[in-house]
Write a protein that binds this DNA or RNA. Structure first.
Lengths: 199, 199
DNA sequence: GTCTATACGCAGATAGAC
DNA sequence: GTCTATCTGCGTATAGAC
């Protein structure tokens, strides 16, 4: 097994442990133990904990881009693609109820630590935001595409946060269904008194 | 200054530091230094870090109850009270953009740490949930009061989470305005095709 | 590239003087 | 009630043998 394989294993383990237990609570020993490496050898691959964090974020950026692209390829309809986004909450409900949203919780933790990588983590949100905005543009909502994207992204974060607190699967399904209803209303021609879209 | 004053100062400092920097990232030395105590004396008041956490959560429970009661006393209209809840996001926008929602971020951190006080922190959410549900009951929505309460609580969490990532004040104001519009729609008699409320 | 051994600081926690 | 001194363990990080 070459060095690049070992490095990849380290980043995969760190990614999972940062998500499940948090960045700060995860030690070098935890990651090394998970991969089956000695702590000493660990430093051959990564000099500091921040370097691992950067690698984990880069990995998540790649994975997110790949996921968003696969949805675009698999589905011709923008509203269907946005529904895929919302339904990630249902698909990943067990992990979300246990550890929250990987992006949101990392951003929160790095904000509190006032960590240099705070902006890099927030960039993960931008990937979703821009992708969602493009889907709303394709639905003919060029004027408020970004606001609509932020709105549904906000909802997914809210659902994830409360899921972790109450661990209520029904709540997730109900709110995702409500997001789908909201989405459908966005596809209809807006009436002047409609309060369903964000201003 | 008596022991109970010192204890109160410790809990106040810990409350602020847990919020701003996180529970795990805050050390005994940080709290002691903030209060102006030696670490040794600190242990006269609290034996373990978990004891301080319990005291901080108890303090937050009291403060939350007092705030919710003051809203009920100050405002006769339930919808006005719920608007007060939503507008906390605007009033506290600076702190929220820096450190997130005190309740949501604590619940997330304790969930990742698999901490014993996880449920106690989630109880803070229950205070808001039950209070909001009572307001919706007063608005004549007995049948789905709890779902409506969870829905607006979910929105406030989503806004807080994205605020911390993007630090966008306009986003907060826009989403709070949208919450107020949604709330107003809840007060009207529901039409059969209305998709604005959670199912 | 992987290991063992180790440095160093800070964390939580305790003992005992005043 | 407050202090200083100290213990123990674990955190990140390094040096150097194999």
């Amino acid at each position: 097994m070459g060095a690049s394989d070992t490095r990849r294993h380290i980043v995969e383990a760190a990614d999972r442990l940062f998500y499940e237990n948090g960045f700060e609570a995860t030690s070098f020993a935890d990651i090394a133990g998970d991969v089956g490496l000695s702590r000493g050898n660990f430093y051959y691959h990564f000099k500091t904990k921040d370097e691992i964090l950067d690698a984990v974020i880069a990995r998540r950026v790649s994975a997110t881009r790949a996921m968003l692209e696969s949805w675009e390829e698999a589905m011709p309809s923008p509203s269907e693609r946005i529904r895929s986004f919302a339904n990630v909450l249902v698909a990943n409900r067990t992990k979300i109820m246990a550890h929250g949203c990987p992006v949101g919780t990392l951003c929160n933790e790095l904000a509190k630590l006032d960590h240099a990588a705070r902006g890099d983590a927030a960039f993960l949100f931008s990937l979703f935001r821009d992708w969602l905005a493009r889907q709303f543009c394709a639905l003919g909502r060029e004027a408020d595409a970004d606001a609509l994207a932020l709105h549904i992204l906000m909802r997914s974060q809210g659902v994830a946060a409360l899921s972790t607190a109450f661990r209520d699967e029904d709540f997730i399904r109900r709110e995702v269904a409500d997001m789908e209803n909201w989405l459908q209303a966005q596809c209809l021609p807006a009436s002047p008194s409609d309060s369903r879209k964000p201003a």
